[in-house]
C-alpha cells in the first residue's frame, strides 16, 4: 500500500459517503418523528432518474437536483398519505414504495440509459485546492460533499437545541402526549416524511449526476437500505451518520481500489463487503438490546390516530 493509491482512495470515499449521509439524515429525521419509511431505496431511484433527465434537458445540475428533490417528495407523499391518513402498515407501505420506485424509475428512464451528463462541478478554492496532498484530499470536491457534511451538525442542532426539534422528538417518543398538549402530530409527521423524501431524492441524484454521471436501472444497488441501516448504526444521532457513512463509503470504494492495494481476491467478494459490513455493524449495535431501547424513538413504526 502506498501513498499514490491512498489519496484517490480517500478522496473517492467522500464521494461514496455523500449520498449515504444525505439519505440517512433524511430518514433519521423521519424516524425521529416516529415514522419508519422503508422506501428510501425507491425514493433514491426516483430522484436519480428525474434529476438526471432534468439535468439532461435543462443543462443545469442545480435544476436537476431541485427536480430530484421534488420528485422524491412526491413519491414520499404517496407513502405519507397511506401511512398517516389511511393508517396502513408502515413496513408494508415502505416496501411498496421501494418496489414502486424501482418500477417507476425503470419506466421513466427507459430511453435515457447510456446517455451521460457532465459530472457535478468540482469546487476550486484559491491556494487551498493547489496544496499538495491536502488539496485533492479536502479541497477539490463538488459542493454537495461539503453541504452533506455541514448538514450533519445543522440537523443535530435543530433536533436537540431548537423548539422544532423538541416537538419532532416529542411526536416520535410520545405522540399521544404531544397531541394532548396540542401539537399537530399528523401534520408534522407529513412534513418529516417529505423532508426525508427530499433528501433521499438529492442523494439519488448525486449518484446519477455526481458519482457516475449517467442513468442505469437500479443504480442505487442497495444504498437506500444501507442508509436505513446507518440510522440504526448511528443510534438515531446525526453525528453517528457522518462517521458511519464515511466508514461505509470507504468499504464501498475499496472494491475499486482493491487491485491497487494488492488484494488478490475475486472482485465479487470485494463487492460484497459493503453489504457484509452493514450486517456486521448492525449485529454489533443491536447485540445489546438496551442500546436500541434507549435510543430508538418509542413510537417508531406505530401509527397514531387522534381520537377526535
Amino acid at each position: 500500500m502506498n501513498v499514490e493509491h491512498l489519496i484517490p482512495f480517500l478522496a473517492s470515499t467522500a464521494g461514496a459517503a455523500t449520498p449515504l449521509i444525505l439519505a440517512a439524515l433524511g430518514e433519521l429525521v423521519t424516524e425521529r418523528s416516529g415514522v419508519l419509511n422503508l422506501g428510501v431505496e425507491g425514493m433514491m431511484l426516483v430522484g436519480a432518474v428525474c434529476g438526471f433527465i432534468a439535468t439532461l434537458a435543462s443543462g443545469s445540475a442545480s435544476f436537476g437536483l431541485l427536480v430530484a428533490a421534488l420528485a422524491a417528495m412526491a413519491a414520499s407523499m404517496i407513502f405519507a398519505f397511506l401511512v398517516l391518513t389511511l393508517q396502513t402498515n408502515q413496513v408494508a407501505t415502505g416496501l411498496a414504495l421501494t418496489l414502486f420506485g424501482v418500477g417507476l424509475s425503470a419506466f421513466v428512464g427507459r430511453d435515457f440509459a447510456g446517455q451521460t451528463v457532465p459530472p457535478l462541478e468540482h469546487l476550486h478554492f484559491p491556494v487551498l485546492s493547489d496544496l499538495p496532498f491536502l488539496g485533492p484530499l479536502l479541497f477539490r470536491f463538488d459542493a454537495l460533499v461539503y453541504a452533506s457534511v455541514l448538514a450533519v451538525p445543522l440537523v443535530g442542532y435543530i433536533l436537540t437545541k431548537t423548539r422544532l426539534g423538541l416537538v419532532i422528538r416529542a411526536i416520535g417518543e410520545a405522540p399521544a402526549s404531544a397531541h394532548a398538549i396540542g401539537y399537530p402530530v399528523i401534520a408534522l409527521r407529513y412534513a418529516m416524511v417529505l423532508f426525508g423524501g427530499a433528501l433521499a431524492g438529492i442523494a439519488g441524484a448525486y449518484l446519477s449526476l455526481g458519482l457516475t454521471p449517467m442513468w442505469v436501472e437500479g443504480m442505487t444497488a442497495g444504498r437506500g437500505w444501507i442508509a436505513l441501516a446507518l440510522v440504526v448504526f448511528a443510534t438515531w444521532k446525526p453525528r453517528g451518520v457522518l462517521l458511519g457513512a464515511y466508514l461505509f463509503g470507504g468499504v464501498t470504494v475499496l472494491q475499486f481500489h482493491g487491485q491497487g492495494f494488492g488484494l488478490a481476491i475475486p472482485s465479487q467478494f470485494l463487492s460484497m463487503l459493503p453489504y457484509l459490513a452493514t450486517i456486521v455493524v448492525l449485529v454489533l449495535i443491536c447485540r445489546d438490546p438496551r442500546t436500541i431501547l434507549l435510543n430508538k424513538p418509542m413510537s417508531l413504526g406505530q401509527n397514531f390516530k387522534a381520537d377526535s
Partner: peptide, 17 residues
C-alpha cells in the same frame, strides 16, 4: 417492458389503500 414493474408497484399501493 418496464411497465410491468410499474403495474406491480401500483397494485400493492392500491391494495394497501
Amino acid at each position: 417492458s418496464a411497465i410491468t414493474g410499474l403495474f406491480q408497484g401500483l397494485l400493492l399501493f392500491y391494495l394497501l389503500a
